[in-house]
Structures are given as structure tokens and as C-alpha cells.
Design a binder for these strands. Structure first.
Lengths: 192, 192
DNA sequence: ATGTATCTAGACTAATGAGTCTATAAAGGA
DNA sequence: TCCTTTATAGACTCATTAGTCTAGATACAT
């Protein structure tokens, strides 16, 4: 055996994710990555592969964290309406820097070449997972009598996926909390 | 006097706009632009300036066309609910290629460096204009008794701006017409 | 006809940036 | 101690691409 790894790969990956999140794929150079991850060029290539491989790992990491966060939200706050309200209101209240960086997966979607099948697949699966998290929560709410049986959970879930992306796009242009909250307010009325 | 311009600058600009629309700023090279615009390198630089200047002209052209189209819609179809329905349903029914290219200004928003003040300003002004087109239409609808006085036109306008962007982001991932229509359906209920 | 401006074709420059390679130091097991 | 592996630093290659420059053809006004 020989020398053991010195840096923490997960921590380095998280750092890389944050760079991509802040700057986008095209605008992050290897130099910036090396600097922010705190490792040298060779370690980066040895541990994560090339730039694209690192990017894909960062997307997956972001996705997993974001799903975990959503599941935590819906399992901890009730009724669902309150959970959706918290989701949209927290988004509205983010800082300018947070609004400017937006959502890594939304950026990946818009930035990518439309023929990029690998990223397309990751994004589609992500969308389905988020929809199903929302759908499950809404269905449970129906069973608990929190939500009318006349509502279609799948449609509402898709609607909120779209709404969140729309709000993120708006927030990137201008961090106007009240404006975002008024959008949230109209959207949340869909649950009444 | 001397030789007159041979190509139509507006037609060339429209061609450039379509390239940026389909490929994004980073992914369109001067070679592709020259080819699609049907003019030589030197003519391009003489007439439009450098790549970024051409891009900004393309964004402005797109914005103007898109505003004109929206105004046409709201002045020609009544009641407003029907106009919004047509807007969202037409979007849902676009072809795969149309969904893949999405909206040039949304792409510009997500692709840009967040410190790019010139594009930021153009996007903000665009958002305000679209909001005001929607707001005006909704206010007129209130006066005509088509829409409840309890609704806030400005909030609804912002909500639809966000919804459209969210739907465009979804459509880029997958052209699922029924799914998009179900989102549209939930969103349109906000006008009831 | 001549001059002037516009066009095309394509060579050329310069910068950027991803990925490879070399040299060298340090850590730990045998 | 010696060997293997991981690390760092930085030189180097190679491809891409924006932007400039040169040469020559073409159209139109005077």
C-alpha cells in the first residue's frame, strides 16, 4: 500500500458543484475549479475524470441533495398547502446572490445543446422524481382530507414544477421579493 | 456614391436571430452565422459589429417581434381568458424543434454571466413590457366585466409571465403536449 | 471610363482553455 | 530503507474561435 488520499472527494465535489452553480458550465475554467476545489490538476483528472464527467457528477450530487431536501420538507410540514407555501416563500426570500445563481439543473437545461442525450436523460428523470414527490404528498393530503378529491394531484404536481422554474427565471432577472410572493400567492390558490 | 448594399440587413438579422435561438450564444460560431446569414465575414462585421453586438441586435429584434405578437393576440381575441388559453395551448402544441429551441430571451437569461449588466437591463425591460401588456389586457377585462374585480391584474400578469417561462423550461426537456396542457389548465383556473 | 464603396474568399493573428506530460515531494506499508 | 501511490506545480500540446487583414471582383454614380 501507499499514501492515502488527502482531500475529501465529496467535499471537493461539493466545491465543484458550487462553482458550476454560480458560473455555469461554459464559464467555469479548469483553473477556477482547481482553485475552488483546493486540489491540483492531476488529482482532479485522476479522481473525477474530465471536465464533463465532473460536471455530470456535480449535477447528480445537486439532484440528490435537492430531492432529499424536498422529501424532508413534505414529511415535516403539514398540511401540504403549508409545505408548498414554505417552498415558494423561501424561494422568494432568497438573497440576490442565491437568486442570481438560480437552480443548477434549470441552468443545465437551458445551457445544454438540445442534442445532449445524457444530460437530457438526467433532467427528465429529475423532473419525474420531483413530480412524484409532489404527487405523493398531494395524494396523501387528499386521503387526509386536506385537499379536495376533485383536484388532480399529477396536474398540480406538474404545475408546481413549472411554477418554481418560472419563479427562478424571474428571480434571476430581478430579486423582487414582493413580486415573487405575489406570483406564489396566485399559484398557491390552485390548492384551494 | 458607390455600390449599394446587396443583402437585406433585416433578413440577415432574422437569420442570425434564428441561429442564436437554436444554438445559444456560445454554441454559434462566426462560421455558422456567415453561412446562415448568407454573407461574408467582412460584411457581417461592417454591418453589425462584432458577435456580441449582433447578438444584442438579435435579442432586440426577437423582443420586438414577440411584443408585437402578444399585442396582436390580446387585441384580436376576447375575452382575455380565451387569449391566455390560446397562448398557453399554442405553446403546448409546438413541435419538438420549437420546444427544443424554447425562448431566446429565457435562454439569454440563463446563459448569461449574472454580472452582464447590458443583457440584464434588456431582460428586465422586456419582462416589464410583457407584464404591462398582460396587465392592460386584464384591466380592460375587468372593465368589461369579464374578470372579477377581486383579482389583482398585476399579480396575475406576473404569474403568467412566470408560468410561461416554466412551461418553456419543461417543454425543452420533453415535448409532452398533454402534460403541458394540464399545466396550462391549472394556470388558467387562476382567471376564474 | 473612372472612382468609390461593397462584396467575397480566405489567410493570418492572438487568445483561450482542455487535457497530457514531466519532475518532484511526501506519506505510509513491507 | 525502499517501493508504491498520491499529491503538487507547471510546462506543453492542440484545437477552437473571434477578430483583423489582404486581394480581387462587382456594381453604380458621375
Amino acid at each position: 500500500m501507499a499514501r492515502t488520499k488527502e482531500f475529501d472527494p465529496e467535499q471537493a465535489l461539493a466545491a465543484a458543484m458550487n462553482v458550476f452553480w454560480r458560473l455555469g458550465y461554459e464559464n467555469t475554467s479548469l483553473d477556477i475549479l482547481m482553485h475552488e476545489m483546493g486540489i491540483a490538476r492531476q488529482s482532479l483528472y485522476d479522481t473525477f475524470g474530465d471536465k464533463r464527467a465532473l460536471y455530470l457528477k456535480a449535477l447528480a450530487y445537486y439532484r440528490d441533495e435537492s430531492h432529499a431536501s424536498l422529501r424532508r420538507l413534505f414529511s415535516s410540514v403539514r398540511p401540504v398547502k403549508a409545505a408548498f407555501r414554505k417552498l415558494l416563500l423561501d424561494l422568494s426570500a432568497e438573497s440576490r446572490a442565491q437568486h442570481a445563481r438560480g437552480c443548477l439543473l434549470l441552468s443545465a437545461n437551458m445551457e445544454r445543446d438540445s442534442g445532449d442525450a445524457i444530460i437530457a436523460k438526467l433532467l427528465l428523470q429529475n423532473q419525474r422524481t420531483v413530480e412524484s414527490i409532489f404527487t405523493d404528498a398531494l395524494r396523501k393530503a387528499q386521503k387526509a382530507g386536506e385537499l379536495s378529491r376533485n383536484q388532480d394531484p399529477a396536474s398540480l404536481a406538474r404545475f408546481f414544477v413549472a411554477t418554481i422554474q418560472g419563479m427562478r427565471a424571474m428571480a434571476r432577472i430581478k430579486s423582487d421579493r414582493k413580486a415573487l410572493e405575489s406570483v406564489a400567492s396566485v399559484a398557491l390558490a390552485a390548492l384551494e
